[in-house]
Design a protein around this nucleic acid. Structure first.
Lengths: 317, 317
DNA sequence: GAGAGATAGTTGTATCATACAACTATATGG
DNA sequence: CCATATAGTTGTATGATACAACTATCTCTC
């Protein structure tokens, strides 16, 4: 990065901080109301038709759904918002502003118009245009950059090691399996030690690990261990997708990447162990050619489970 | 406001909201740290030398001083900031970053540089310049606008009625005198009813009220009642400055405005009642020519007080 | 048609940032 | 010397936020 680019970035950061302070985002209420910043944003998004459900607001405002639920409940209690059950999907509640809510929205708009109007009043038309282009341009750039980082369609799969991969894969397994079948410390310890041992062999050409980040932390992974079974048999391990990426198709894409690796390496077979009942995963395995080879019932880490081994015969080009 | 100006303001507002969301200001931690937005801003301001005291941070970040005190305490506890007592003013604590704090600052800078760098990477140099000019221009416009609204040197004194004036003047009196001498409801009731009655006569040319707003609400006032005493004697009433403007010289300026009004009206005398002990106020009165005319000891609204009447002889041009 | 898995939204709970108020220690000016 | 102001701290209350677990509903597969 040359000196000019570094200076540009510092100027942007400095101006951003000043903007945020001037816009009052470390204060508890906003825009001349007694509403929190989130509530003001929510009201504006509902008023302007960009959000009609709590889910929309959660996405737009980047708040956890329980926070949105609570701020909506308050707006409903104050008589500013009304919710009605969707006719097609009874889970969904449609949000609209009441007369009172429209008045509040109008007051917020007026207050903000005054504030912004006073701020730009001394400026020439040219400078105002530059200002608007700058703000919109930067907002758009940030949004696009974030979208690119997170979009499931984007090639967000990274191969190999990166800091926190080991810890996160262990954490995701512990979290998932403790919820599923009550596995605890012995399970987590084993996952950690086996994965750590595997990571020491990651430089071997027959071994690979792939991961995906979401919201700045690793949220999905898969690995191929080409050494721990006999001969030219690959072992598919540590395949997991956490909630943030569940349902995005990332599991399928991770599996495809691992299988492509196996085929390229020329393994005669790929094996994996899973548990009976994980039907979503099983469907994925079967779609790429895995078949159930054996089942073992037994007690593992304090839980009665049926382990299943699937095998996929290698396909040479 | 014509249609183009209204559209400009709406585009600015919309872009501001998007920016704020992208910059993560409704989230609990910021910039890839486990620090709150305020703590991150504080660290940056200390690191870059713009803040060396808690008071500096309170001003820059627009936080209440107790919030600054607590966030600094946490940064000190984590070993990121160190405070030393000022040699000249033992009240003041000078703040510097530790080695650890410098490392944290560097990590924040690096994370933000990556983030901003990625956001602007696809943009041309021209667009980056526009973006920077826009951000800096708007931040500066907002800062100037706020400064103009609040600067004590600026003609921030407004004359006459505005919504909330009556309630605020009553509130300020109740707050101040309950703290000073324990006056309660009877006092507040009397202030309210007398001021309300006076406000009904505000259109008379011999009556006037002046007030100053701070942070969007009225924080100082003074009034001249040219009718409630005999003949051509003016009554200076409801002179009060609350904590937010105390020490800024506004009291002096309000008094000057009121006295100028009295002289312009040609009153033979101006009278005022105050309490013994209010030495700051007394100094102001004496500076513009008031002299102690009488004192009455007595019990008022449950408190033993000594009332004092000051008189200023009118000065004809 | 039943069951598994996913989704929309709610509630329990904990944490933490913020402000108001009142306090202590120190500085300043009359 | 005393009154007032200021820098900073602490007691206390409030409310926003997230994690987790729950209920109700929807969708898809067998």
């Amino acid at each position: 990065m040359d000196a000019d680019a570094a200076t540009d970035i510092e100027r942007i950061r400095s101006a951003s901080r000043r903007l945020v302070r001037e816009l009052g985002f470390m204060e508890q209420t906003l825009a001349g109301t007694n509403l929190s910043p989130s509530a003001v944003h929510a009201l504006i998004e509902i008023a302007e038709g960009r959000a009609t459900t709590a889910r929309d607001l959660s996405d737009l405002l980047r708040l956890e759904k329980s926070s949105v639920s609570r701020l909506l409940k308050k707006l409903i209690e104050t008589g500013d918002v009304v919710e009605t059950q969707d006719k097609d999907d009874f889970r969904v509640k449609r949000l609209t502003l009441t007369t009172n809510g429209c008045a509040l929205f109008a007051a917020i708009a007026k207050s903000a118009q005054t504030r912004v109007g006073q701020a730009i009043a001394p400026l020439s038309e040219d400078i105002i245009c530059t200002l608007i282009a700058g703000l919109e341009g930067y907002a758009e750039a940030l949004e696009r950059s974030r979208s690119d980082t997170m979009a499931p369609d984007q090639p967000g799969i990274a191969e190999g090691y990166r800091p926190t991969v080991l810890g996160r894969v262990v954490e995701m397994h512990a979290h998932y399996y403790s919820g599923l079948v009550g596995f605890g410390l012995p399970f987590e310890t084993k996952v950690a030690s086996e994965l750590a041992e595997f990571m020491t062999r990651l430089d071997a050409p027959t071994n690979g690990i792939w991961h995906v980040a979401s919201g700045g932390r690793i949220s999905a992974s898969i690995a191929i261990d080409g050494q721990d079974l006999d001969g030219d048999v690959a072992h598919l391990r540590w395949f997991i997708v956490d909630d943030t990426l569940r349902g995005t198709g990332i599991g399928k894409r991770l599996l495809d990447a691992a299988i492509a690796f196996c085929d390229a390496q020329g393994f005669s077979e790929t094996h994996l162990w899973t548990f009976q009942g994980l039907e979503t995963a099983r469907a994925l395995y079967e779609r790429v050619g895995f078949q159930l080879a054996e089942e073992n019932a037994g007690r593992q880490w304090g839980a009665e489970v049926i382990e299943q081994r699937f095998v996929r015969v290698g396909q040479r080009d």
